[in-house]
Design a protein around this nucleic acid. Structure first.
Length: 595
RNA sequence: GGGGCCGUAGCUCAAUUUGGUUAGAGCAUCGGACUGUCGAUCCGAAGGUUGAGGGUUCGAGCCCCUUCGGCCUCGCCA
């Protein structure tokens, strides 16, 4: 077998005259009857091979049999291409290799799709033949970025004194949070492991064990419906530190983020990254992961709206709701039908019951802006001016408003704001706007179950000053949690944890978790807390989303080598699949169809 | 569980106002030609159960029902 001396992205003019051997796949094939050109491809690049019938008739004859994606070993001499024959698109484009020995290492069936325009090929087909899809430089680049990010991460945490420690995949199911993937136990009949949704409690136990600083690049599993940026199995960069407060955790980890963006994209992330309170994020952007690449803040005009003659607004504010919205610069170009069909339907998808709008028009006579809309008649000239001032609106802008409870209004306005920004081309794709969201509420009230839920998770510590409100006003307690957000995408989140057993017990109580339940689910952990738990905190980054940002894709499957479809199937291997009856017998399981 | 978009040759797409001869094109494939190409070019050939099943009709890629699959999304994701 021909062993390669170089790879296909390596040879340059300086190698002229060298005897070399290359291995790779036939990327393209150009037969001129006499001369034959082969572009040979491997992970590193493409090099042109030449077969000349005059000097090497035997090899030339053989070369004419070659086909795309065949696997070759080839030896020959590097030579400069002639004047005007270089290919500036290739790093190796100044040279070519004149082949005197060719070995077909393997033939290949014609690929089911062409590699060079696979971007427009049905993704289903790419997933079925993932081995071919992953030959494409575009996909290999994403895999490489992912590799480099994990490498940087390991080097960084190592240099900061963190140890990488593995935690179990076969764990204990806890009904909180997402649905668990269950694994039946053979030895304990009728019992199940759960695959981890995150190593949360194990990493806290490691702190109690005095490990001091831990990290892990770890697979996590959540059995929920996938999305464009969500897979049932995904990877976290999981971190925990002892004897720290939030500032310590934030400091170390934003330096990692800055290093990754510097090394991968050459972007300088200003450290410290700015911080924004949860309250402000919700007020100004309607969401706890604001996209700060553009402004277009939300404004609350409830007071003005309540004074108007518009019944929907008056009633909503009267019931304690709000009238809130934003002003889209240049949005005046949208037709009434754009607004009342497209945007209203869009908002309705997010639960909005309606969408009010004003076009800002120039009043030539008064030499100032005015509002035009089917509901403009319900507003006095003064009220209209107040609205224009509130939004700092200019002629040809579009003001969009939703009247509802604060939560409901925010829920629809946040995605609507993004949609308008995209429609109006307000987003610079080359910009990365980082922000830490801090001062989250510890709890949110769960109307349905008549109890509080953790906004983050039940092990998050309250801010010390708010501690006394645990008994009196739980809803107003802030937590020591922090999320890092880039361009509207949450790439990481964490908190300082509760390290005192009595406070942990109190929080469980507010979450309506009984002592018995707490013992069943987290007994081992409550026990561990009693044996000298240090103050500690940590964070977890979503590696997949981070790599998505770094490779500028909005499809999580593009950054996972072997991803699954929306039904959680692997089209390459055809998992999940039925199993042998004997396997079920071993597990004492019986299947049934229902519904 | 709900909503939306999609499925025609190996791939990407066409196929005329509810329907009307033999379902077309580009790329890929196969064969031939060609001394310098690099998305080679030129000539030719082959390639189809229109995702599947049923229905309406004289006639269905097109209309109706069922079903399978993919993507986006709401719910869900402590």
């Amino acid at each position: 077998m021909i062993k390669r001396t170089h790879n296909c992205g390596q040879l340059r003019a300086g190698d002229t005259g060298s005897k070399v051997s290359l291995c790779g796949w036939v990327d393209s094939y150009r037969d001129h009857g006499n001369l034959v050109f082969i572009d040979l491809r491997d992970r590193y690049g493409i090099t042109q091979l030449v077969f000349n019938p005059e000097t090497q008739p035997e090899m030339h004859r053989l070369s004419r049999q070659l086909r795309c994606e065949w696997v070759l070993g080839a030896s020959g001499t590097v030579r400069m291409r002639g004047e005007g024959l270089t290919n500036p698109k290739l790093p190796t484009g100044e040279i070519e290799v004149l082949i005197d020995q060719l070995e077909v290492l393997n033939t290949a069936k014609t690929p089911p799709f062409e590699l060079d325009n696979a971007g427009s090929v049905d993704e289903e087909l790419r997933l079925k033949h993932r081995y071919i899809d992953l030959r494409r430089p575009e996909m290999q680049n994403k895999l490489e970025v992912r590799h480099r990010v994990t490498k940087i991460t390991r080097d960084f945490y190592d240099s900061e004194g963190f140890w990488e420690i593995e935690t179990p995949f076969l764990g204990k199911s806890t009904p909180e949070g997402a649905r668990d993937f269950l694994v039946p136990s053979r030895l304990c009949i009728g019992e199940f492991y759960a695959l981890p949704q995150s190593p949360q409690l194990f990493k806290q136990v490691l702190m109690i064990s005095g490990i001091d600083r831990y990290f892990q690049i770890v697979r996590c599993f959540r059995d929920e419906d996938p999305r464009a940026d969500r897979q049932a199995e995904f990877t976290q960069i999981d971190v925990e530190m002892s004897f720290v407060d939030s500032d310590d955790v934030i400091d170390v980890n934003e330096r990692l983020v800055a290093r990754i963006f510097k090394e991968i994209l050459g972007i300088d992330v200003k450290v410290p990254i700015r911080r924004m309170s949860y309250r402000q994020a919700m007020d100004d952007y309607g969401i706890d992961r604001p996209d700060l690449r553009f402004d277009m803040k939300l404004k609350n005009i409830s007071e003005i709206a309540a004074q108007s003659q518009f019944k929907v607004f008056i009633d909503t504010v009267g019931r304690g709701g709000v009238v809130k919205g934003f002003c889209a610069p240049g949005g005046g170009k949208f037709s009434r039908s754009d607004i009342e069909k497209t945007f209203t339907n869009f908002a309705a998808d997010y639960g909005a019951k309606g969408l009010a709008w004003f076009k800002v028009v120039a009043d030539e006579q008064a030499k100032k802006a005015d509002l035009a809309s089917s509901i403009a008649k319900f507003f006095s000239p003064q009220q209209k001016q107040q609205i224009i001032e509130t939004f700092d609106a200019k002629p040809n802008d579009l003001i969009l408003l939703i009247a509802d409870t604060m939560d409901a209004a925010n829920k629809a306005l946040a995605p609507l704001r993004i949609k308008l920004a995209k429609e109006l081309d307000m987003i610079d794709e080359n910009v990365y706007e980082f922000v830490w969201i801090v001062d989250f509420p510890l709890f949110e009230w769960n109307e349905k179950d008549n109890r509080y839920d953790s906004l983050h998770h039940p092990f998050t510590a309250p801010v010390p000053q708010d501690l006394e409100k645990l008994d009196t006003d739980p809803a107003s307690i802030r937590s020591q949690a922090y999320d890092i957000v880039v361009n509207g995408s949450e790439i990481g989140g964490g908190s300082v944890r509760i390290h005192q057993p009595d406070k942990q017990a109190k929080v469980f109580k507010l979450l309506n978790i009984s002592d018995t339940q707490a013992q069943e689910r987290f007994g081992f952990f409550l026990q561990a807390l009693k044996y000298g738990a240090p103050p500690h905190g940590g964070i977890a980054f979503g590696l997949d989303r981070l790599v998505m940002l770094l490779t500028r894709t909005d499809n999580i499957r593009d950054v996972i080598a072997f991803p699954k479809t929306q039904k959680g199937q692997c089209l390459l291997t055809d998992a999940p699949s039925e199993v042998e009856q004997s396997q079920l017998d071993d597990l004492n399981l019986r299947t049934q169809t229902h519904h």
